[in-house]
Computed example of a mutant assay.
Amino acid sequence: MDPLVDYRITIVFLAFLLDVALGDPTWLYHPVRVIGHVIDLLERPARRLSLIGLKASGAVAVLFLTAAVYTIISMIIGLDGIGIILAVWLAYSGLALKCLLDEGERVRRFLQAGDVEGARQQLGYLVSRDTSQMEESDIRRSLAETLSENFSDGFVAPFFYLVLFGPAAQWAYKAVNTFDSMWGYRNERFRELGWFAARLDDVLNYVPARLSVLLLMAARLRFGMKLWRDIASDARTMGSPNAGWPMAACAYLIGSRMGGPTVYDGVVKDKPVLGSGGDWGDAQLETLRVTLLRAGWIALGCALLLLTFFI
């Protein structure tokens, strides 16, 4: 439990405001980069533990680093005098809403200027798929997909754990999520070593992914059981138990479909189609940006009400 529980409303409020105002400042060495560097260092010793099986050794690595992150952050925010300042900074650093929206805007600006090649390259920094041959419509659809998906695991999930359990739990989640982004690939190198990281990330994102749908519905002022059932039905067609929820929600709420043929490592993968609308244009991407930002503010309002009256 967060030792600064008496200041939790202040921490949550300031963390969100700093995120939407500043994003990730490039002049600071981001804690995620530290975690990523440690994960790189852990791969070799984890493979040396292969006598217990790569899945088991991968699990040991994930649990070891996650526990270490939780312990270290708990100690840092518990320091007398500067603990609350460090808690605000760590909580803010663990949120990525403005960074996500800014990255999306960079791709849009290339498209608005007619620079398709620049848009392909910029999008390539955000997605694992092959962008080199994408047409404008594919770029816009791919951008909408990554913005929607990352709204959940880049903002809603870390905000969820921050609000309920404090910065230490928020960063424990970030450690697992970073493991998944680095080891969670279903290829020969990481299929077994990253198995536990991927499964634990699925568990930790289960509730936030579904909460993100409610936030997005609130942001668009559209509710109803039929809408929820349509979103849920499409979300369940995805290979991931969580990624399809915010993606399907945005597809239905904005009226532009997602999914379809997508190229990964030169191989075309026919992804499930989410929603029943048309293609993504610049106006739809702007609506998506506004919707995600508005949903973030709604999340803050819900968090402050929860912390004030119920926790």
Rank of each mutant, 00 (worst) to 15 (best):
K98H: 14
H37A: 08
T291L: 06
L221I: 00
N150M: 11
L95C: 13
A46N: 13
W245V: 07
I231H: 02
P158M: 06
V5C: 05
G277C: 04
G224V: 00
L214P: 03
L285C: 12
L63W: 06
L101D: 12
R120C: 00
F223I: 01
A21M: 14
L307H: 13
D138W: 08
I72F: 15
V176L: 04
L147W: 14
I84A: 13
S181F: 12
Q112G: 03
F160E: 03
M225Q: 07
L17H: 03
Y7V: 01
V268K: 05
S74V: 03
G281D: 15
K98E: 09
P45R: 15
V263Y: 08
G255K: 11
G244N: 07
W27K: 07
L4Q: 12
R47G: 10
V62F: 12
F13N: 03
D153N: 14
A232H: 07
D130I: 14
G83M: 05
G259R: 08
L65A: 01
D130N: 06
W183T: 02
S137T: 04
G58H: 07
G301P: 09
P31H: 03
A283W: 14
S74W: 11
L28P: 02
D265P: 10
A243H: 09
S152Y: 01
T66G: 13
G81A: 06
L216F: 07
V290E: 05
L41Y: 13
V127N: 10
G94I: 08
M225E: 09
K226F: 00
G275Q: 03
D6M: 04
L49C: 04
T262Y: 06
V5F: 13
C250H: 11
R257V: 01
R189N: 01
P3M: 04
V213D: 06
L49W: 13
D138K: 13
L216S: 01
V20T: 08
S57T: 02
V273K: 08
M1P: 05
L101A: 08
L86M: 12
Y29C: 00
D282R: 08
A198H: 14
V263E: 10
Y92I: 08
L164I: 07
L307C: 03
T291E: 00
C99Q: 13
A67V: 15
L253A: 06
G301R: 13
E145I: 11
V207Y: 02
P241E: 00
S74T: 09
V32F: 15
I85K: 10
S74M: 11
M238F: 13
G81E: 11
G277D: 03
R257K: 15
Y252E: 04
T10Q: 09
Y252S: 07
D153Q: 12
A68L: 15
P272T: 02
L306H: 13
L253H: 13
V176A: 11
G53T: 10
G259M: 14
G94Q: 11
G53W: 10
I85D: 06
V290P: 00
F179W: 14
I139Y: 12
L97G: 12
L126N: 00
S93Y: 12
V203P: 05
L204M: 12
